[in-house]
Amino acid sequence: MKVGEYLRVPYLVTAQSVERPDGSWARHVEHPELPDCTAEAESIVDALTQLETKRIETVVSLLKSGRTPPMRPYLLGDVQARQRVRRAGLAEKIEPLWDTDASSMRVG
């Protein structure tokens, strides 16, 4: 499979409001299917934006370590997935990898 196909997987998102030690509240979001793929911010929009960046980085990191990210029987469209990469500010880093065979990503 190509790297771009793994980046098209629509992972489950969970969200909850959590109280911080100082008494303020934050929105905590995560992709429970991916290791350590969480984000927290005051606004849900900011938390989800951070989570999207973390998802992309986590999937690429898993591939580089030789592990296969969880898959689904359906994928997001190619254009939609590429737009998510651009919005996350990772286009320069990820676009060159998009059509790379994921098995060739392994480092070490």
Rank of each mutant, 00 (worst) to 15 (best):
E57F: 04
S24L: 10
E42Y: 11
G108H: 13
R67D: 10
H28A: 01
G23M: 12
V85F: 08
W25P: 00
V45C: 04
V13S: 04
A39V: 12
C37D: 09
V59C: 02
A47F: 15
G108T: 14
A47K: 09
D22L: 11
L75Q: 06
G108N: 13
G77V: 05
E52C: 08
S65M: 08
T38H: 14
G66T: 06
M105R: 10
R86Y: 07
A41G: 06
T100K: 10
V59K: 01
Q83F: 06
D101V: 08
R82Y: 08
S65V: 03
Y74C: 02
L90F: 04
G66M: 10
S24W: 07
V29A: 01
R86Q: 13
K2V: 00
Y11T: 03
S24V: 04
E30R: 15
V79T: 14
A39C: 13
D78P: 00
T53F: 04
P32V: 01
T49P: 00
E33F: 00
V60L: 15
L63E: 10
P96F: 02
A88E: 09
I94S: 02
D99G: 02
R72C: 05
Y74N: 10
G23W: 15
T49D: 08
R87E: 14
D99K: 03
S24Q: 11
K64E: 15
Y74K: 13
P35Y: 00
A15K: 07
W25F: 08
Y11H: 13
C37E: 12
W25E: 03
L48R: 12
P32G: 02
L12E: 14
R87C: 04
P70V: 04
K2R: 12
C37Q: 10
A26E: 11
P35V: 13
P35L: 11
G23A: 07
M105G: 03
S61C: 07
